[in-house]
Amino acid sequence: MTTEADMRGNRVLAAVPRPELDRLAEHLEPVTLKVGDMLYEIGGSVPHVYFPLTAVLSLITDVGNGHGHFVEVATVGDEGLAGLPVFLGAGPPSERATVQIAGSALRIGAEQFRHDVVVLDGGLQTAIQRYVQAMFTMMARNAACNRAHNIRQRCARWLLMTADRVHSDSFSLTQEFLAQMLGVRRASVSEVATALAADGCIRYSRGTIDVTDHERLQEHACSCYAVIRDAFAVAYEGLG
Rank of each mutant, 00 (worst) to 15 (best):
T2L: 10
A5K: 10
D6R: 09
D6K: 02
M7L: 15
V12P: 00
A15T: 06
V16G: 01
R18I: 14
P19N: 07
L21D: 03
R23M: 13
R23D: 14
R23V: 13
L28W: 05
L28F: 11
V31R: 07
V31M: 03
T32Q: 08
K34I: 01
V35R: 04
M38A: 14
L39N: 05
E41M: 04
E41N: 13
I42P: 03
G43E: 09
G43S: 07
G44Q: 07
H48C: 08
L53E: 06
V56I: 13
V56A: 08
S58A: 15
L59D: 07
I60D: 14
T61H: 05
N65E: 15
G66Y: 06
G66L: 05
H67F: 12
G68S: 14
H69P: 02
F70H: 13
F70S: 10
E79N: 12
G80F: 09
L81D: 09
L81C: 13
G83R: 07
G83V: 08
P85K: 06
P85Q: 05
G91H: 08
P93H: 04
E95L: 05
I101L: 03
G103V: 11
G103Q: 07
S104A: 10
L106P: 01
R107K: 15
G109S: 07
G109R: 03
A110M: 04
A110P: 02
F113T: 05
F113K: 01
R114N: 11
R114Y: 10
H115W: 11
V118W: 01
V119Q: 02
V119P: 00
D121N: 10
G123T: 01
L124R: 02
Q125K: 12
T126I: 11
A127N: 07
A127S: 15
V132H: 00
F136P: 02
T137Y: 02
C145D: 15
R147C: 09
R147A: 15
R147S: 12
R147F: 11
A148D: 14
H149Q: 06
N150G: 14
N150W: 02
I151L: 06
R152I: 12
Q153A: 14
R154I: 13
R157L: 08
W158C: 08
W158V: 10
L159F: 04
T162I: 15
A163I: 09
D164L: 05
V166M: 01
S168M: 05
S172W: 01
T174P: 00
T174K: 01
Q175A: 07
E176F: 00
L178F: 03
L182I: 12
V184P: 00
S190A: 15
S190G: 12
E191Y: 04
E191N: 11
E191R: 06
A193E: 05
A193W: 06
D199S: 07
R206P: 02
G207T: 11
G207Y: 05
V211I: 15
T212N: 08
D213F: 04
E215S: 13
Q218L: 06
E219A: 05
A221Q: 03
A221V: 09
S223A: 14
S223M: 06
V227A: 12
A231V: 14
V234D: 12
G238Y: 03
G240C: 05
